[in-house]
Amino acid sequence: MRVEIWGSRGSLASPGASTVRYGGNTATLLVVGDEGEHLVLDAGTGIRPLGLKIPAEVRRVDVLITHLHMDHLQGLGFFQPIFRPDLEVHVWGPPSITMPLSARIGRYLSPPLFPVTLRQMPCRLELHDAEPYARIGSLRVRSDLVCHPGPTVGYRITSPGGKVLAYLPDHEPALGVDPFPASPEWTSGFDLAHRADLLVHDAQYTDDEYRDHVGWGHSSIRQLAAFARMAEVNHVAPFHHDPSHSDAEVDALAGELATLLPGAEVLPGAEGATFDL
């Protein structure tokens, strides 16, 4: 399968001269399966340019949303394929015990926040609570709740050949754990990430920044290193870059991560980056 990054910024889109290399669009990945499956991970602002590149012959797209914070949802109404009547669009999101996914997404995709409602989307739209285990075409998709404010899931996508992408863009497994990490069974996200071929994971903060943001749902670069080491992952893409971080600052964080994970491949999430697994 091929993994493409279309948006790697966290919290808020951050275009500008200082973010040109890693990009300013918020969280969006495309996963193309070996049998042509098109899975979009999160509907950040990167989903707009991504939507323009979905081939006309594609008849089904699955949008897997980790949670409903705006940086992961804001682009959905600008995803051109949802205006294609010939297309099935399946949107998956974290379950809630109080409201169905359609009602929760509909809070944003409805006036006055957005002019078009979900029911007016021309595509054949289906919404699903993310299931612990699902199959989309030839891809196995596992989801599990992770530590982040509000219901939030991470995804583990396995190809027929056994290659694994783990996607945990917003994740604070170190919250309340001192020292971190604890044992695997007491660590949020462990099963999703364990021995993945590529881990795309929250790395929003420096250690100093984290001290002022405990409980906000994100990780420091040092926490990501500890998590990746425990999960036995050797290919890590730090992701969800802080909107205030310049390209040079992301470079510095990635350099620190590479130092903390000797032997591992560290490539910061950047718009336009592709990974063949």
Binding site: D144, L145, V146, C147, L175, G176, V177, P184, E185, W186, T187, S188, G189, F190, D191
Partner: peptide, 18 residues
Amino acid sequence: MAQLPVELILMRQLASYL
């Protein structure tokens, strides 16, 4: 042992601070 549900993990973390 497999990872426990995150709700239990968070419950333990909360308890450990109370």
